[in-house]
């Protein structure tokens, strides 16, 4: 019964998370309000737009009950601008994520996938956390709602490659304490890089464990004023063994 998977989300689980993102739909048929476990769904009345979770939007789309409005960042113009930013203007970092809304209720700060970054009024010039998954899913399920599917698909692929190269170059900066900041990284990219990045950090930590412990001891001694003896060296060697 216990989960036989290693730590970290699998790509399928990331896609599952991504399906909780809100997207905008234009209903083609009326659908009464439903009371779901995750809260009420508004009445869908054509031709009024509504924001619903992606999984529901896909269900509606499959049954031809609604059209999906592509998020403002998922079109040729926005993606080209972001790609330009990624490759030309900031070749080191990931492009900045969408602006965070002000913190409303202190007790429940929302984060992806619940931020409305991919609805029709989302920010057009930033990639949301689940950009890769969302792009793939929408292009697959609702390609007729896009204007230039092939071009969008090509840009997504270019973006993916550009960012993957950054993820790889970030490996040089890894040490036993962690890596450089990765603001703007996507969910699927985390899932992809996790086992390698965390594996490198953990291995470096194990290799450097004796050194780190000696350093900590030295710091403690400095604080207490105790002068270490020559035995310290031997202890370090013991730990290595």
């Amino acid at each position: 019964m216990a989960l036989p998977l290693p730590p970290g989300l699998t790509p399928a689980e990331v896609a599952f998370l991504c399906e909780m993102e809100l997207v905008t739909v234009i209903p083609r048929q009326k659908l009464d309000s439903l009371h779901l476990l995750g809260g009420p769904v508004p009445v869908l009345q054509p031709p009024l737009r509504n924001n619903v979770p992606l999984w529901l939007a896909l269900l509606l789309k499959k049954q031809r009950r609604a059209n999906i409005v592509p998020p403002p960042w998922l079109n040729v113009e926005s993606l080209s601008a972001i790609l330009d930013h990624e490759t030309e203007r900031a070749p080191e970092d990931f492009s900045p994520p969408p602006k965070l809304p002000p913190i409303g209720d202190e007790s429940s700060i929302i984060s992806p996938p619940f931020l409305p970054t991919s609805t029709a009024d989302g920010q057009p010039n930033a990639l949301p956390y689940h950009w890769m998954e969302l792009g793939e899913i929408l292009l697959e399920a609702a390609s007729d709602d896009f204007e230039d599917v092939d071009q969008v698909r090509r840009l997504l692929r270019d973006l993916r490659e550009a960012r993957l190269a950054k993820l790889r170059s970030g490996i040089d900066a890894l040490d036993s304490g962690g890596g450089k900041p990765m603001n703007g990284i996507g969910g699927m990219e985390v899932a992809e890089g996790r086992s390698f990045i965390c594996g490198v950090i953990d291995s470096l930590r194990k290799i450097g464990a004796a050194k780190e412990m000696a350093k900590r001891e030295r710091e403690d001694e400095d604080r207490t004023g105790y002068q270490g003896t020559a035995d310290d060296e031997d202890e370090d060697m013991d730990m290595l063994r």
Partner: peptide, 28 residues
């Protein structure tokens, strides 16, 4: 980071991480 949380010591590194909302990091 869900909100600003001040400085966090990162063991194994000499620097600290000044946690700002939205930051993503790999740490112990």
């Amino acid at each position: 980071a869900l909100r600003d949380a001040g400085l966090v010591r990162m063991p194994g590194r000499d620097e600290s991480w000044d946690v700002k909302r939205g930051d993503v990091r790999v740490v112990r």
